[in-house]
């Protein structure tokens, strides 16, 4: 009997291990962070929203992790502090922030990302985007470029590019030689 029970237990465990388990879906802690991100900042009377693309990327990342309520509370604290700071600057948009103000605001973003062992970086102009990477260096959120990418030069364009650049270099070199010859002749 014991053997049969042990066998059933082994089979049950093996079956359980076959069910794929991913950190999929948005739990209530993650949802609270997404909701907080959707709350606008009142910048000098203007309701300024975090762009949809940022919130969507955060949601995509939350689908791959399991955030705890404690982590969410800490992150929400930084988001609230960052929003209060933005409102205290008396600027009307992200684009009006000075380099120092961007630096201070990014401090809150970095602290929030740090709760999930992520690091955030950006240039001096917030409108040009933010990049967030994990400990392994993998990009988690990338808003450092345009939403619509440059899609006009793939690897098949390389031979043409090589020909074009080489041709330009040769033409300009020849022009330089001719110019120096002409100058010498004039002298």
């Amino acid at each position: 009997m014991k053997k049969i029970i042990a066998l059933i237990a082994v089979v049950a465990l093996a079956a359980l291990s076959c069910i794929p388990a991913f950190a999929a879906g948005i739990n209530s802690a993650e949802q609270s962070v997404l909701n907080n991100m959707r709350t606008p900042s009142n910048m000098n009377g203007n309701a300024v929203y975090v762009p949809d693309s940022y919130i969507n990327q955060a949601e995509a990342n939350f689908n791959t992790i399991d955030m705890t309520q404690a982590q969410a509370d800490e992150i929400n604290g930084y988001i609230n502090a960052g929003r209060s700071y933005l409102e205290s600057t008396k600027r009307s948009s992200y684009g009006e922030l000075s380099a120092d103000e961007v630096k201070t605001f990014l401090g809150y973003a970095r602290a929030a990302a740090g709760v999930l062992d992520l690091s955030a970086g950006a240039g001096s102009d917030l409108t040009k985007g933010v990049k967030i990477i994990n400990k392994s260096g993998d990009v988690v959120i990338d808003e450092s470029g345009n939403v619509v990418k440059a899609t006009g030069a793939g690897d098949e364009a390389v031979p043409m590019t090589v020909i074009a650049v080489t041709g330009t270099l040769l033409a300009v070199s020849c022009a330089g030689v001719l110019l120096s010859k002409r100058k010498t002749a004039v002298k």
């Binding site: 794929p20 388990a21 991913f22 999929a24 879906g25 995509a60 689908n63 791959t64 993998d138 990009v139 988690v140 990338d142």
Partner: peptide, 11 residues
């Protein structure tokens, strides 16, 4: 079900 979906990371 979402639990059966392995959401892809970047790249």
């Amino acid at each position: 079900d979402a639990s059966e979906v392995e959401f892809p990371g970047i790249n």
